[in-house]
Design a protein around this nucleic acid. Structure first.
Lengths: 347, 347
DNA sequence: TGTTAGCACTCCTCCTTATTGAGTGCTAAA
DNA sequence: TTTAGCACTCAATAAGGAGGAGTGCTAACA
């Protein structure tokens, strides 16, 4: 996308970006020369800066200010310049063990991971629940609770337990329930979620009607609930560390602070935002974001995959002036962690 | 606490508070006289204002500004002056029906209620999960998932379903599990949560050891999990409508906005805040709040009670300049709604 | 004696006008 | 090609009024 740039320009650009990430202020040639001992003078730096600006990698807030990196500049940095990944903290293994002992519900794991990630990077973290697309039903159980209530339990091949209380309009005898349980379990166990199509359900419905003599109402209802559990289109998302935003100098004015906080309140849009990505790891810088209100933010999102099927997303939302190396490796690490934890608890 | 005040003073105070709630600005004698057609002049109002200020019910930001109500003023208003409760919206019944069809998990209900309340009052809403203190175990089931994993399901008398995956260190045969299931179910069903004491568990443990020959390890583990589910000290809390805060003029400066937003991020403290109240319905105005950072906010909290035991809290957090009548009745209504919904889904 | 009009006074808010200083771009010399 | 020097730009900050809403006080009035 961009032609090669000279080694010296690269040096200058990298220094500017690092300095800006550190200070959040426009970087001037003088400061740069003082802090980094280059073997060329401020005047030379100024010339390079002017070139870099012309190439679109730097911007000037106003004529008499220093330079700040443009989105394109950050992009160049992320793609080609940055280095230094985080090594995995050793204490993590212990933490992981502790965690999977205490928390086993999906909820708990998700929110704990959001907490962990945001604590690591000191930016807002976002985690989305795994979808069930590729996973199979490994167990299905109907438990009677009261005369008109059943507890439907579906365990999927990735080890996740889903349950839902179903209110029935009419009673079921114990035998009827047993029959129902047996048939459903037999027919649905081992099925991939995707295989449970309209026509498959139709057939199942007919079989149930034939072999048992319930009203169609109950059967319909059960089907709804089962598919409801698994094909739920709205994967829940978890946010943590929202208040880190308050500490970022770029959001130190009411207008932009309000703008970003309002976005974080609209979970629906956030879900789409992280769901719509294609690659395993994506970095969206500033205006690369589709969401208008997030165009002075960056988003780093990774995909996690569960053994036995199902994928979800982990990400970080922060200012474009973000410590990309650290954030990227932390997000990566967290994605890995999530699959490990869920897989472990699901074995 | 406060002596009676004259009818005219009452009129003036009430008008000032209502006007201030509306505009968020200090209220002057002139404006007041214009808007409310009293049968006395601005000069008289000024005299009354001076008196009210001396009584501590009003404050003056600076000498040449109008008056604003003090916390004490609001307290007087809430205790004696305000009127006009909200009548229940008729559409609510339909909504309630729709809701309990779609959502049955505690999670869903809680977050939906927070959403509903914050939408009604246009302030931040807070809901805490019910505790199990007074409820009984009405059903207990251990479901095998895999060789080393069990699903523990506990249904309490208030109709709530709790489940947790338990990872075992060693395998259990089917018969062993059946035995375990039977004994646990027999011993624990019908027990109040409070009755499951240390000594009770000790006895249970001995019985299990006598009648089955597992390692003490497994038994210990199961007990931990069961008590863990029910006696969890940290009831989850749900927030919604955080961004309404952004629209309040009193938080239109960075400092106070940050202060309040940071508090809302500390779930732990919020939980304690709503848990520590004594009455069924409490209104904490400004400095009446224990939390230092919330002393220019008001908190309206109601208690909801579940059939079959268990109580939790619903509340609203907003500026002290809050529409108390509307908020109080909305909070009340929501508390009622929560018990109804859970009781309904739990019958 | 309580109420009201008049008026001087206070003090916040907003606008305008310097002042400062970091940083640039250009020119000319090395 | 690099660098020193210098004029220039422009945001940020401070300082000084002007305006205006609102008060408290005084004195007149019913």
């Amino acid at each position: 996308m961009l032609a090669e740039i000279s080694g010296r320009k690269e040096k200058v650009l990298k220094a500017i970006i690092q300095e800006h990430i550190l200070t959040a202020e426009p970087v001037g040639s003088r400061t740069l020369a003082r802090k980094y001992d280059f073997d060329f003078s401020p005047a030379t730096i100024r010339n390079e800066m002017a070139d870099l600006e012309e190439m679109g990698l730097l911007e000037q807030p106003h004529t008499s200010a220093g330079r700040i990196p443009s989105d394109k500049g950050y992009r160049f940095y992320v793609d080609r310049l940055m280095e230094g990944k985080l090594e995995k903290p050793v204490s993590l293994k212990k933490y992981l063990k502790e965690l999977s002992r205490q928390k086993s519900g999906l909820e708990d794991i998700m929110s704990e991971m959001a907490r962990l990630l945001s604590g690591m990077v000191k930016y807002t973290a976002i985690v989305s629940e795994p979808g069930f697309a590729e996973s199979k039903i490994s167990r299905l159980e109907l438990l009677p609770i009261s005369k008109r209530k059943l507890l439907l339990i579906v365990i999927t091949s990735n080890g996740l337990v889903n349950n839902k209380v179903i209110n029935l309009e009419s009673k079921l005898t114990e035998e009827e329930l047993d029959d129902l349980n047996r048939i459903l379990s037999k027919r649905l166990t081992g099925k991939k979620i995707q295989e449970i199509t309209e026509s498959f359900l139709q057939k199942l419905e007919e079989e149930l009607k034939r072999r048992l003599n319930y009203t169609a109402r109950i059967i319909k209802r059960l089907e709804e609930e089962i598919t409801g559990i698994l094909a739920k289109e709205e994967m829940k998302i978890y946010l943590d560390g929202t208040s880190y935003i308050l500490e970022q100098p770029e959001f130190n004015d009411l207008k932009s602070l309000k703008k970003i906080l309002k976005v974080l309140d609209r979970k629906e849009e956030l879900r789409r935002l992280v769901a719509d990505l294609e690659d395993e790891l994506e970095v969206k810088i500033g205006t690369e974001n589709k969401l208008q209100e997030m165009q002075n933010c960056s988003l780093v999102v990774a995909t996690y995959k569960l053994q036995g099927g199902g994928t979800g997303r982990v990400g970080v939302i922060g200012p474009t002036r973000m410590e990309y190396p650290r954030v990227i490796s932390s997000v990566d690490l967290t994605a890995e962690l999530i699959s490990k934890i869920i897989s472990r608890s699901g074995r």
